[in-house]
């Protein structure tokens, strides 16, 4: 799996993580009245597991970092906007240039970075 594909799959995984977190929050149903099917949530969790296994196999170190950061910040990957990390809002040093050659992490907060300008 190329780095580009890995990152694309990783932020899809994060979307799934955020969705699962959202629908399992008791306040969600309380405030919105929206219902979700528990069977479908379980199905989504199975899908999440499959993608996670694929990512773990492709790049164990980066996947582990994602999980560690997710526990710490609630997410493991974030966008770079105007050369700034949108997790810790630190400006990135000029030496950091977007490339497909390697996966880049924030030198300040360690989060995995993606450029989606």
């Amino acid at each position: 799996m190329s780095n580009k594909e890995f990152l694309k799959k990783l932020y899809f995984l994060q979307d799934l993580d955020l969705l699962i977190q959202q629908v399992e929050d008791p306040q969600y149903t309380e405030k919105t009245g929206l219902q979700v099917s528990p069977d479908k949530v379980e199905e989504l969790k199975r899908k999440r597991k499959e993608i996670a296994q694929e990512l773990r196999k492709a790049n164990p170190m980066m996947y582990q970092r994602y999980e560690m950061l997710r526990r710490k910040y609630g997410r493991g990957i974030t966008r770079v906007v105007n050369r700034m990390c949108t997790n810790c809002f630190a400006a990135l040093p000029a030496s950091i240039i977007p490339t497909d050659e390697k996966i880049i992490t924030c030198p300040n907060c360690s989060i995995i970075l993606i450029w989606l300008e």
Binding site: Y11, Q14, D15, L18, L19, Q22, V23, T32, G33, L34, Q35, V36, S37, K40, V41, L44, I77, T78, R79, I114, L116
Partner: peptide, 19 residues
Amino acid sequence: ILGSTGIGKGIAIPHSRSI
């Protein structure tokens, strides 16, 4: 997929967190 956000009576609230 988890359940339609079409809440009925002609209204829908599609929503998501997104990067």
